[in-house]
Nucleic acid binder design. Structure first.
Lengths: 155, 155
DNA sequence: TGATATTAAATAGCACGCTATATAAACTGC
DNA sequence: GCAGTTTATATAGCGTGCTATTTAATATCA
């Protein structure tokens, strides 16, 4: 290990440190955010991915699984069981589309629509936990979106 | 829904949009990063969390489970099965500490130590996928670390 | 029109990260 | 010295996100 630091490979070490730390920062911050969301969303009985689905449907009700997936960058392997649990919890309904029977349409139940009201405080709680200003968050968001696009183009 | 946008609650809507998008940016970027790592680490047969453990051990061999956990913000519920799989793969060894038998010490196997060599190219591949400059990454990392600290203090 | 290719969702299997709990060892205070 | 408390790790159970594969429906092409 010490021989590594003094080897001709040393120029790579800073890159190794920096890179590892950046990715780790992303990973660990994401986990930390998840922890906050679990606490804040517990009263609603929602997990964060479920909350995302609800937001997509509140924005526009009745979407196919793949439409939801496109908005959230998730595929049906993740969404199908997730949506099934939400249906079991009485938040949504899943029905085969008559126009194209390969599609399953997801619609909000009355309880799911009503939940938007009690979910109104969620963003404030989260914003509070970030300890950031709206401007700071906006800038960070933009940077993350650039990074995400680059990463998605790399695979 | 339309009644919502024109309601007195409208001041909250921008916050709801911004907040949701920031957290979602973090979440989706983290997923995208994970996908890149899966591809880059596949030749080594490592998952990203396993790679993190290896980096911690390459930095300093022989650590207890909780030491590793402190470095990675992970607890034993996650680490124990993960380390068991790594032991089964011949990368590490796990032994009860004689000094304190509650502790399990994790040490690199010869193969685990040797793997550091072939892992040397990983950071370069990742850096390439981010499409960012080292300076840009450094700034983003710092911002994420501030956010992470704030989030961790909020729960 | 029928065969083939493509698509949407579901399922199988795995790894991970979390909360809750259990077990054994170490620590503390009387 | 002993009972009670705390600590380190392991286990149980759940939800999620991934790759790979399957099933049924739709689209395409000759």
């Amino acid at each position: 290990m010490n021989s590594q630091t003094s080897s001709p490979d040393m120029p790579q070490q800073p890159s190794q440190r920096l890179d590892a730390q950046l990715c780790f920062a992303l990973y660990s911050t994401s986990l930390a955010m998840g922890k906050v969301y679990r606490k804040v969303l517990a009263p609603l009985g929602l997990t964060y991915p479920q909350y995302l689905v609800m937001m997509v449907l509140w924005e526009q009700d009745e979407r196919s699984v793949s439409e939801i997936g496109e908005r959230l960058w998730l595929d049906s392997a993740t969404l199908t069981p997730l949506l099934k649990r939400m249906e079991a919890a009485g938040l949504v309904q899943r029905t085969r589309s008559a126009a194209d029977e390969r599609q399953v349409m997801v619609t909000l139940s009355p309880a799911g629509r009503e939940m938007q009201r009690s979910a109104a405080e969620i963003p404030t709680g989260i914003l509070c936990a970030t300890g950031c200003t709206p401007e700071g968050l906006k800038a960070l968001k933009a940077e993350l979106e650039v990074l995400r696009r680059n990463l998605q183009q790399a695979v």
